[in-house]
Design a protein around this nucleic acid. Structure first.
Length: 499
DNA sequence: TGAAATGTTGGGGCG
DNA sequence: ACGCCCCAACATTTC
């Protein structure tokens, strides 16, 4: 019993599989810790694997920016494993046959992973668990990705939460930091030789993703570095600076959390390195709470990425406007703050949170374009794209989700610029053709005189687009459309297509 | 985690 | 001195 030494030749016969998914880290990883503990107790090797499965009908292919990040992150993980004497085994294809083959090739008897709750992931995991259990494999899943897994929190009536604030109250009342454990210093020795698909074969590059390297350090080390910077320099004032896209006022942890390069428990506890960070840390933890809430919502409403939660919105009179969608995607709406955000997204794979709300509101409410078109664009271009966060936040802005912003809350891009980019630094950075304008001239260049434009070397419609919609009219049109679906409108025949 | 329209108040200019 | 008007500042309501 117990820790009796086992000859290495025998031990290799029954390895333990450690299946990485969106938890690409060695520290604070319950599945990893359990696999290593079992291996150590039984003298077995541990084989770390990652499977890129885009085969199942319901699984959504990764977006381009996510692919770029994943390739980098897997490289980092493989590097960290090599430092410990092993390496990451990569496979691309359908999960179950790949696992079956690995088990047949290695004689593995045990599989560990951290639970996930997105619909396609859940489907695959249930299938795997049943199929491998039938083969006599011990499949062990772990709690490693959320503050509270979505299966744990229910209202007093036993229902899923539909409103964030009570959800958050319950979560933060009950929360105690979950699994935290330093990365292992070494890996169990193994003589197994297992083939791995080369990273390049997984096609992780996209033509436009090159500049991302200037802005990000994917991988576990980069994640911890980002948290350290946040705790030291940013967290204290986070409650206010997080709304300022012109400042480095956010954590920038979202892609690291999306790929699980850092544990959400580590982010929770690590944010208050300084005792003075109180208010900012509370505000940051609330954002982590939104991450849990969105997963909670997706778990209980799996159609979230495709279907409005609130039924009246399912018949919202969206416009089919390919040109308008393209203008939004390219950052050519003629509204400088909107365009700045869309260009930041394109160049860096990320957009400041407040600006995300503004550009999303603009697409849905000013342009009357389906929120799912925006969701799809973000899915392709965000390095932090996550099925729950992306869909949940788009439905929130559209006003059709759980606890959503009311539809009649329509952002005014000019006002938002004055409030949250008061010196115009953010607009000037991402829309450099407007850089010579005076700060008060920046939010609405179409209102400027010929002299003002000339002084800044701008020809409107040539150097920078004219606005594709007119704010006041677009706002009125959105409210009309909203009244129409909410049943409050007696003007159902109102012309929604002339702004 | 809005904005605009509408309502109220109070100081100051003015006859 | 007083009432009247204007309007900025603030508050409330509406979308």
């Amino acid at each position: 019993m117990g820790k009796m030494a086992t000859p290495a030749t025998l031990s290799n016969h029954k390895p333990i599989l450690l299946w990485f998914r969106r938890d690409l880290r060695l520290a604070d990883n319950p599945a990893l810790a359990a696999a290593l503990a079992a291996a150590s107790a039984q003298g077995k090797p541990v084989i770390p694997i990652f499977i890129l499965d885009e085969s199942s009908a319901e699984s959504r292919p990764l977006g381009g920016a996510s692919r770029w990040w994943l390739g980098k992150s897997l490289t980092e993980l493989d590097h960290a494993l090599k430092q410990r004497g092993t390496r990451l085994i990569l496979r691309r294809g359908t999960t179950l046959p790949i696992l079956r083959q690995l088990i047949a090739d290695t004689g593995a008897v045990e599989l560990h992973f951290n639970r996930r709750f997105d619909p396609s992931g859940l489907t695959i995991d249930r299938e795997i668990t049943a199929a491998l259990a039938a083969l006599g494999i011990s499949v062990v899943d772990h709690d490693g990705n959320y503050l509270h897994e979505p299966t744990l929190l229910k209202t007093l009536q036993g229902q899923p939460f539909k409103v964030f604030t009570p959800f958050w109250r319950r979560l933060s009342d009950r929360y105690t930091p979950g699994f935290l454990q330093a990365a292992p210093r070494q890996w169990p020795a193994s003589t197994l030789s297992i083939a791995s698909d080369p990273l390049a074969s997984l096609q992780f590059t996209r033509p436009w993703s090159k500049p991302f390297e200037d802005y990000w350090q994917p991988g576990e080390a980069g994640a911890h570095h980002a948290l350290g910077t946040f705790a030291e320099d940013v967290a204290e004032d986070y409650a206010t600076t997080r709304d300022r896209p012109d400042l480095a006022g956010t954590s920038r942890l979202s892609p690291h959390l999306a790929w699980g390069e850092i544990s959400v428990h580590r982010a929770w506890t690590g944010a208050d390195a300084n005792a003075e960070n109180g208010g900012g840390v509370q505000s940051f933890r609330r954002e982590l709470g939104w991450r849990d809430f969105n997963m909670h919502v997706l778990y209980h409403f799996p159609a979230l990425p495709q279907l409005a939660w609130q039924e009246p919105f399912r018949s919202f009179p969206f416009k089919l406007d390919k040109a308008g969608l393209k203008a939004w995607q390219r950052g050519a709406t003629g509204y400088p703050l909107v365009d700045a955000g869309m260009r930041e997204l394109w160049h860096t794979g990320w957009m400041h949170n407040r600006v995300r709300m503004i550009v999303a509101s603009f697409l849905i409410k000013h342009q009357l374009i389906d929120w799912r078109d925006g969701e799809a664009w973000f899915w392709d271009t965000l390095v932090d794209a996550d099925p729950a966060q992306n869909a949940g936040n788009w439905q929130w802005v559209a006003g059709c989700g759980f606890d959503a912003a009311p539809f009649f809350r329509i952002f005014n891009p000019m006002l938002q610029g004055e409030k949250f980019d008061p010196k115009g630094d953010y607009i000037r950075r991402w829309v450099p053709e407007l850089a010579k304008l005076k700060t008060r001239e920046l939010p609405a260049p179409w209102k400027l005189s010929a002299e003002q434009l000339a002084a800044a070397d701008i020809v409107l419609g040539k150097d920078y687009p004219k606005p594709i919609v007119q704010h006041e009219a677009a706002r009125a049109r959105a409210l009309t459309a909203y009244r129409q679906i909410s049943g409050k409108g007696d003007d159902a025949q109102a012309d929604l297509f002339t702004v």
